[in-house]
């Protein structure tokens, strides 16, 4: 029984880690510029496709592929900000959300058009995945890597936000963006950094998603981002601790549903998870850890 609990807890952690990674990427952009970046999933997909390309042109070294995939995701995120989101930077949230939807739609179909509508095998990350037996508990090394990588990423992000100049500027910008500009810090620089970080986190997520699925298709990132989006809202949109909390909560909820629901209802897992989320939102419309917003009314 204890074994079972430990096993499921580890499952929940690794699920939650993935959602937390993606949710953090969404939250960091939202906290700075109020944009709900639905195209984040396609940044993840770019990570996946870049691995496919690198494998195809005979890169065998996994370090190169990992670094390359993260790099591709970062570049993609910065690129999207530059061409699609900069024009709607100061527009209302609905405009930003719909723009991001449009961008997501374009990219998904570009993958479909330029690569293939079908999944393409990418096996170069399989080496991360081997079974580990601890007594009667059986887990995958991937789960451990994923949880550790997420914790490490969170730790580095916290250090960056607390210690570095740009990090402090970004925290300031999430409170009062205009005041940061009035300190002489370029808006473009802060926002590009936010997108770069979100791309970095998406790239890490892409590596683990590919390692688990072994294939890339145009909707690779869409469903995970949908979940991460929900995690963000539950945690309190724009709050970074909220995104992490929401991510792990969602992971726990999913595993919990798989445990509780009878086998025949397994397919309905998402329906139940989303229903619970809706109920949480009714209870706390602003999310569990909603960020403080303080802005001057003038200027």
């Amino acid at each position: 029984m204890i074994d079972y609990v430990v096993q499921q807890t580890l499952n929940a952690l690794s699920f939650g880690a993935e959602y937390a990674l993606i949710a953090l990427g969404l939250a960091i952009v939202f906290s700075i510029m109020g944009l709900v970046n639905f195209a984040h999933g396609e940044v993840i997909a770019i990570g996946g496709y870049s691995m496919m390309v690198m494998a195809a042109i005979a890169f065998k070294n996994p370090i190169i592929i990992i670094v390359g995939a993260i790099f591709a995701a970062v570049i993609m995120a910065i690129f999207l900000e530059r061409i699609a989101f900069r024009p709607v930077r100061y527009a209302d949230a609905t405009t930003g959300l719909l723009t991001a939807f449009g961008v997501s739609l374009i990219l998904q179909n570009l993958f479909l058009l330029l690569v293939s509508p079908r999944p393409i095998a990418v096996t170069s990350m399989y080496f991360l995945d081997w079974p580990i037996k601890l007594g009667t508990i059986r887990i995958s090394s991937l789960q451990i890597f994923e949880t550790l990588a997420t914790l490490l990423a969170i730790l580095l992000l916290v250090l960056f936000l607390k210690r570095s100049f740009l990090g402090i500027a970004m925290r300031a910008a999430s409170l009062d963006f205009e005041m940061v500009r009035l300190m002489g810090i370029r808006a473009n620089r802060v926002i590009a950094t936010a997108f770069a970080i979100s791309g970095l986190l998406a790239g890490i997520a892409a590596i683990f998603i590919i390692a688990r699925r072994g294939a890339v298709d145009p909707t690779l990132g869409f469903n995970p981002v949908l979940k991460a989006f929900v995690a963000c809202v539950v945690g309190g949109f724009g709050s970074l601790p909220g995104a992490v909390l929401g991510g792990f909560l969602l992971g726990a909820l999913e595993v919990g549903m798989l445990v509780i629901l009878p086998q025949s209802y397994g397919g309905m897992k998402d329906a139940f998870v989303f229903a619970v989320i809706a109920i949480i939102l009714v209870w706390r419309p602003e999310g569990i850890l909603s960020p403080q917003k303080e802005k001057g009314d003038k200027i």
Binding site: A172, L182, E294, G296, D297
Partner: peptide, 16 residues
């Protein structure tokens, strides 16, 4: 500028 309504970064420390 020291703006109207002060607009300190409320979640940042005084030093920050």
């Amino acid at each position: 500028i020291a703006p109207e309504g002060r607009r300190v970064f409320s979640n940042l420390s005084v030093y920050e």
